[in-house]
Design a protein around this nucleic acid. Structure first.
Lengths: 189, 189
DNA sequence: GAGCCAAGTCAACGAGCGATGACTTGTATA
DNA sequence: TATACAAGTCATCGCTCGTTGACTTGGCTC
């Protein structure tokens, strides 16, 4: 698109970060298979060969995006009361490009990719499931964590794959409240 | 793989159905983008060109699979009591290749495909959301249907993308019960 | 048994993909 | 200012995909 020299000096670190940022956006919007290296490179204003050079392979690029673009960990560290509210608010009301959602959306949009399957599974496990189990604690932690993660995935999937819920503002608020209640009930047992 | 003449006479209707069956399996296992026409054709014992010939295009093949392979409609027609139990039992305990899950799994595995996006959205809407809204009725039908559909998708996604829940038999039963309660509470408001 | 027409195959197309290695360009240092 | 080396580009490889049109094959009819 635009020659990189116009936008930035020849600085490997800066360019690398630009590629990483573009990769996160493209992966979030299109998923692993559909987001091509050429497209990511064009978005960052470099040649596709440079992406392979810096990150080794497309899969390693994905891994780095998933590692650096952290998930909403703070959700799983606060007090138990208000958990449902916090999560529901993020999933339903946060702006679509909120970086806290990046990791989750990339995972959902890349589900069908065989090439990325292992990376996606690992990220899902280490970024969501494991911290959630630890935060919950108790005998039914695994069951509760699975339920909460499933609901979070399902709601996010509905929001971003169907391009919004198709709700009025009032319905949106009501849905958020119902979701908050449902999640909180799972947490509280 | 195997020349079709060995398996069946030259019968267009039979061959067509064989392709349709194989397409359903491959689409369920791999999603729209990853399931190639060559692979589907090989599974049915014919040449890939025949698939294009019979169905026009890959997308039309998907449409026919989604239309003929019905979703678990009966879930949305029974009495309200026991709804949670019925759904939870299907999603958690049904064998992985239960045809009642085909449509849902194909949708989930094809989410990231741009080519199939519209077909997937339409199928999701007409096969799940719309009948669910109608079955629920009442003022909060849309909110409830969205919540239930989201939970169903999330649980199915967790089960089939992560290759099972990773539960013991006891945990599985407990998870099914908790899921049934959660769903029933949404239905009952 | 001959011939016709549908059923099915085969070869090839154009496009897009990730990756590679040789090449060019800019910049910091001497 | 000359030069060395990193930063970035370019051409190209091999592969797979969906689709197309010309071809071959087999079964039913007369």
């Amino acid at each position: 698109m635009i020659p990189p020299s116009v936008l930035r000096a020849r600085n490997a670190m800066v360019t690398r970060q630009a590629i990483l940022d573009c990769a996160r956006v493209r992966l979030r919007e299109e998923g692993y298979d559909a987001a091509s290296l050429r497209e990511i490179a064009a978005c960052a204003g470099v040649d596709a060969a440079l992406v392979s050079r810096y990150f080794g392979s497309k899969e390693e690029l994905l891994l780095e995006v998933l590692q650096t673009g952290g998930p909403p960990m703070e959700l799983f560290s606060g007090p138990r009361e208000g958990f449902g509210e916090r999560v529901a608010d993020l999933l339903v009301c946060a702006p679509p490009d909120d970086s806290k959602l990046d990791c989750l959306i990339i995972i959902l949009r890349s589900l069908s990719s065989q090439a990325a399957a292992e990376a996606i599974r690992n990220s899902s496990r280490s970024n969501f499931y494991a911290p959630l189990v630890e935060w919950l604690g108790g005998p039914e932690a695994k069951i509760k964590a699975t339920m909460i993660a499933a609901i979070m995935k399902g709601v996010t999937l509905t929001r971003f794959m169907d391009e919004g819920f198709g709700f009025s503002e009032a319905e949106m608020a009501l849905f958020r409240d119902r979701l908050a209640e449902t999640l909180q009930r799972v947490v509280d047992g």
